[in-house]
Simulated scan of single mutants.
Amino acid sequence: MLSSSVLLHLLHIDASARIGLSGRDRHGSQTRRLSRRFIDRWATMRPMDPVTYRDVGSVPPRPVSGDWIAAAFTPPERRSEAQRAMLAESDRLTAEVGAADLIVVGVPIYNFGVPAPLKAWIDNVVRVGVTFGFDRTRVGEPYWPMLPPGKRLVILTARGDYGYAEGGRLAAMNLVEAGLRVPLSYIGIHESHAVAIEYDEFADERLTASITAAEAAVDRLVGDLLPGRRNESDTSAASTVSP
C-alpha cells in the first residue's frame, strides 16, 4: 500500500459549459459541484497533496488539425519551430497527465457523449510517442501505453435523463464513461471509478435524492482512494455509482 506520507498529485478537470455550481449558483453545473466536493474533501483529509486545475469547459484546448497530426508524427528532432509551437499546448496537457496520480474529471453527458472541449483534451493527450507507443514492426501488439502504472481516474458525471447505468434502460446510450475509460486505458490508466447524478431535467424530488446519493458516494469514494485504504494490487478496477 502507498504510505500516507507520500504526496499524491491530483489533476482536476471540469468540462461543463456551465461555469457555476448547482446548489450555489443559478443554473450552476452539477458536475462542477461533484468535482469540487471531491477535491475539497480530499484536501481536508490530505492538504499537502498538490492539485492542478484545468477548466476545459471555459478554456477549451485547440482541436486536433491536419497540421497537428503532421507535427505529432514528425520525429522531434526534425520538427520545425512552427510544428513545435503547434504541439506546445499538447505538451502542457500531457505533462499534467504524466505528473498526476489521480485524475478527477467533472463531465456532463452532452448528446450521449462527452462535451467537445473534453474530446479535444483527450485528442491532445492520447499522443503517439508521448503517451502511447507504436511500432509497425513489433511482434504481436504494435501499440502500447507509455504512462507509468498506478494512475487512477475518477469520472463525476450528470445526466438529464435516468437509467444510464449498467443494466438501465439507456445504458447502451451512455458514451461518457466509455469515452474516457477507453482512450485513457489505452495510454495506461486502467483503474477508474464513476459517480453520477441523474434526473437533472426533471428537477423534482428524484433529482434531489440523486444529488444527495451522489454526494454521499463521492465522500465514500474519497475515503476508499486515500492511501492506506486500498489494495495496490487491484489496478484494473472499474466501479460506477449511479443514484
Rank of each mutant, 00 (worst) to 15 (best):
G113C: 06
G113I: 03
V114G: 03
P115W: 03
P117E: 05
P117W: 09
K119H: 13
K119L: 15
A120Y: 15
A120E: 10
W121S: 12
W121Y: 15
V125R: 11
V125Y: 14
V125H: 13
V126L: 12
V126S: 13
R127V: 03
R127W: 01
V128R: 12
G129L: 03
V130G: 03
T131L: 06
T131A: 01
F132I: 11
F132N: 01
D135L: 00
R136P: 14
R138G: 03
V139N: 01
G140E: 10
E141L: 08
P142M: 09
P142L: 08
M146S: 07
L147F: 11
P148Y: 03
P148T: 14
G150S: 03
V154I: 10
V154G: 02
V154Y: 02
I155S: 01
A158I: 05
R159W: 05
D161N: 02
D161R: 01
Y162R: 00
G163C: 07
G163L: 05
Y164T: 06
E166F: 12
G167Q: 08
G167S: 08
G167V: 10
R169D: 13
A171N: 14
A172Y: 10
M173H: 15
L175P: 04
V176C: 09
G179F: 06
L180K: 09
V182I: 13
V182A: 09
L184P: 10
Y186V: 12
I187H: 02
I189E: 00
A196Q: 00
